[in-house]
Amino acid sequence: MKTIFRKILECVQQGQTVALATVISSKGSLPMSKRAKMLVFADGSIQGTIGGGMVEAQVIDEAQDVLQTCNARIVRIDLTSDQIEADGLTCGGTVEILVECFTPQSEPEVFEAILQTMDHGQTAVIASLLPDAEPNRNPAFPQHRKILIQHDGSSVGTTGSEQLDAAILKLAHPKLGQPFLKTCALNLTPSNPSRVFLETLLPPPTAYLFGGGHISSHLSNILHFIGFDYVVIDDRPEFLTHERFPEAKALICQSFEHIFDALTLIPRASYLIIVTRGHKSDQVVLMQALRTEATYIGMIGSRRKIHLMFEHLQAQGIPQTMLERIHAPIGLEIGADTPEEIAISIAAELIQIRRSGE
């Protein structure tokens, strides 16, 4: 998402016009993310995707018209059973896509604030005023149509109406810090109904990799692409290099004995991945990890070794409810064998946990 907003800002600052397509509602089985966004440029090229296929092709065509008129519109596509059969599709449903245009005359402050919010790992809500479902009733849609409601309650941007801005802020404030994605009605007056699309910006989750060996090295490459920040911890400095972990948020060289004292606060939206060089250090980290509220705790090891470790922990008085928090052996069961395959199985489990939490 960050690359999409950065490209919009770049285009506006360089005097180019660009269209942004955003999925604002979907029903049924559709081949797209609920948070899908796509940029369409004047030459017909795109950045990002809303799922490909006939839906994407139609939106690209619609976006070319939006680029000409600079009037935002909502594209509603209903993939009926007849269309599915005719085009050989395997999915069907209904989707609404907001297509809006940004020009060199568009004020960049909102996009600058969005990027700053994401860079600082803060929460926020993006509110997008929607055009009327019947374009002919609202041909002069305002250029100012996005507001960013920041984590401290302040806002950047305006719709051009103080009354409408106030209503949007009131609606958006309770959504700060929550996973939220919804089109909401703003019935200020019976004769002037408005709709706004609210989407929350949440900091990317952080994965803490305890152990800087081969599995962590391969896993870090995947984490970067699936939207995770990551921190690597090891007591061997030669394993903690920027060449091995170029996108690391931090590299921490310290003994595992009291590592969580150095990490201070572990946010709830954290994923603890225990892949040290030995079972002894795995257990040392695990005992500390269980005292956190981390969303995910995963530990590598064979089923036999893990069974023996759990028996030892139970003998030490660790309750079964705490042990049930541990994903061990770590990763989804896909028959992974090599470090690369194990890294993929771990990443798949992180995605599963993350999306089920939404």
Score class of each variant (00 low, 15 high):
F5A: 04
F5I: 01
K7Q: 13
L9D: 00
Q16F: 02
A19G: 09
T22R: 13
I24Q: 04
S25G: 12
P31S: 09
A36G: 14
L39S: 03
F41I: 00
A42F: 01
D43S: 01
Q47M: 15
I50M: 10
G52M: 04
M54L: 14
A57L: 12
A57M: 07
A57N: 12
Q58C: 08
Q68K: 11
R76Y: 03
L79D: 02
D82F: 08
I84V: 15
E85T: 11
G88C: 05
L98W: 03
C101V: 07
P104W: 14
P108F: 00
E109P: 00
F111R: 01
E112W: 00
D119C: 01
D119Y: 01
H120T: 11
Q122I: 01
T123H: 06
V125F: 11
I126M: 15
L129K: 08
L129M: 06
L130I: 12
A133D: 08
N136L: 13
P139C: 09
K146R: 15
G153F: 03
V156E: 02
E162Q: 14
L164E: 15
A166C: 05
A166I: 09
A166S: 13
A167W: 12
G177F: 06
C184T: 10
A185N: 09
A185V: 12
L186T: 01
P193V: 06
L198M: 06
T206C: 13
I215N: 06
S217R: 15
H224S: 11
F225W: 09
V232L: 09
P246T: 02
P246R: 01
E247V: 02
I252D: 01
Q254K: 10
A262Q: 06
L263V: 11
R277M: 05
H279M: 03
V284E: 13
A289V: 09
L290V: 04
R291K: 15
R291Q: 15
T295Y: 05
S302W: 10
R304H: 14
L308G: 02
F310W: 12
P319H: 05
Q320H: 12
T321H: 05
T321P: 00
M322R: 12
I330R: 09
A336K: 02
T338Y: 07
